[in-house]
């Protein structure tokens, strides 16, 4: 288990609940993923703003397989996606933020996990994926794969 030591970054105005929130999210995940025993975050060190959950121990390939094996709940995906579409607008003419409607499920899951594993380097997306569990990712992938 990585302990998630990160360089203390500049702070951003006293976000004191963050550490607590992060720990609690770990506990939530333990519960959520107890069945498959992955993405376990029992504790980690936290350095104010600019903090992300540790990269999961599980190899990326295995994580992709596990997410794809979860049946995607498209209704849950529709709610979660409503947060994504603020930036990822279907008709946006500006491609600094890509369109994601219609992306194949497999591709979507792989790309999002690459953010979670910080192999892709957009910090907004890394933070979003850092907080999303496998079930959520599966739901989103199913939802977006059916949109055109």
């Amino acid at each position: 288990m990585r302990t998630g030591h990160r360089k203390p970054h500049e702070t951003d105005g006293g976000d004191s609940k963050t550490a607590r929130g992060f720990r609690a999210l770990g506990i939530h995940k333990i519960w959520l993923f107890a069945a498959c025993g992955i993405f376990l975050i029992p504790h980690f060190s936290f350095a104010d703003s600019g903090a992300q959950p540790p990269i999961p121990d599980m190899p990326l390939g295995e994580a992709i397989g596990q997410v794809l094996a979860i049946p995607g709940d498209a209704e849950y995906g529709a709610y979660l996606a409503s947060e994504c579409v603020t930036c990822h607008q279907q008709h946006s003419a500006n491609h600094a933020i890509p369109l994601i409607n219609g992306l194949p499920r497999e591709y979507f899951v792989e790309a999002m996990l690459e953010y979670k594993y910080r192999l892709r380097d957009n910090s907004v997306m890394q933070a979003i994926m850092g907080s999303l569990g496998m079930e959520e990712l599966s739901a989103l992938a199913t939802y977006f794969s059916t949109k055109d």
């Binding site: 970054h9 607590r20 929130g21 992060f22 903090a51 933070a127 979003i128």
Partner: peptide, 24 residues
């Protein structure tokens, strides 16, 4: 430059679950 975070309901309060800030 940018700063941001994800949040969820943690013990009855909206708390950050991951965050980021541009680097100097």
């Amino acid at each position: 430059i940018k700063v941001g975070a994800q949040y969820a309901n943690v013990d009855g309060a909206i708390a950050s679950t991951s965050s980021f800030i541009s680097q100097p």
